[in-house]
């Protein structure tokens, strides 16, 4: 039982990173129609930025802030210079993101080699509650994710900006006629999703070492979360991220650990078969198909 609880708590922190990346993807894909396969590379760059800052003597908090800022800025530049031009043809945007994977990954390898990078644990303390050891850093990751999720959720469902955003997803032209700056919202969502990937990268390198090749593994998880939960649905992404994270953690302890990654794929395929709109239902996909 204690081992079970231990696994459960450990897998929560993995689930948090998956949720961060999944929310970014579900918002970008579900609300703007951009299929950005380079999202995993955004996370990788966030992690690398944190590593650079920390290894040059900056604190972890500074590193995480830098990761969010750098990746957010990267998202802004790429949206304005590349993805904006392909909004009416998502397949071209998708191909461009594949090209971006190649470029971003090899630029990182070129300047900072391909070995794995690690930083010292920012929070070293470990609490022991009833025989269950809780690593403080993991708890912090879960907490930060919870805050981010809450902010995102309320911003989309309660604020007037969220309302305008949902209106422009439902009907771009009408929303534009009502005075919603649709293009600016698309850019905003892209930047926000990218910044979340940067944050996810910072969280990830705080938990385990990362390599420049982490992106493609993570991005598939992210898309799995987005599709399983329902596109554009933040609550769905959280649910799906929890399910995948717990499956990962528990299979490492109980199931066959070498098959861990296969489970998320299998679940994604199963959900797409039975409920193509995702567990909680989504925006029925982007409009610009």
């Amino acid at each position: 039982m204690e081992i079970f609880l231990q696994q459960l708590i450990n897998s929560l922190s993995v689930a948090s990173v998956i949720i961060l990346i999944g929310i970014g993807i579900t918002l970008i894909f579900g609300l703007t129609g951009i299929i950005n396969f380079a999202h995993g590379e955004f996370l990788m760059i966030g992690g690398m930025t944190t590593w650079l800052v920390v290894s040059h003597g900056g604190g972890f908090l500074l590193g995480a802030a830098a990761a969010v800022a750098v990746v957010g800025a990267l998202g802004f530049v790429l949206e304005r210079s590349l993805f904006r031009l392909t909004l009416d043809r998502p397949m071209n945007g998708f191909i461009i993101s594949l090209g971006l994977i190649v470029v971003l990954q090899h630029v990182v390898i070129r300047f900072w080699n391909s070995y794995q990078k690690a930083i010292p644990q920012p929070l070293a303390s470990v609490w022991e509650i009833g025989g269950v050891r809780i690593v403080a850093m993991r708890a912090a990751v879960v907490l930060i994710t919870a805050v981010v999720v809450a902010i995102t959720f309320f911003a989309i469902s309660r604020s007037r900006y969220g309302l305008a955003l949902r209106a422009s997803v439902a009907d771009q032209e009408t929303a534009a006629l009502m005075g919603v700056p649709v293009r600016r919202y698309i850019t905003g969502v892209f930047i926000y999703g990218s910044a979340l990937a940067g944050l996810g990268g910072a969280m990830m390198i705080a938990l385990f070492p990362i390599t420049p090749f982490i992106g493609s593994v993570i991005v598939v998880r992210g898309f799995a979360v987005a599709l399983i939960g329902g596109l554009g649905n933040v609550a769905g992404a959280v649910l799906a991220g929890l399910v995948l994270g717990l499956m990962d953690g528990l299979s490492a302890g109980y199931g066959l650990p070498e098959w861990t990654e296969a489970y998320s794929f299998a679940l994604m395929i199963l959900i797409l078969l039975l409920r193509p709109q995702g567990l909680l239902g989504g925006t029925a996909g982007p409009k610009a198909i």
Binding site: F29, I35, F37, M268, L272, P276, I289
Partner: peptide, 13 residues
């Protein structure tokens, strides 16, 4: 069956 974008992601998976 479920549309082009889903198909791309499934093939990647």
């Amino acid at each position: 069956r479920v549309g082009g974008h889903h198909f791309v992601i499934i093939t990647f998976a």
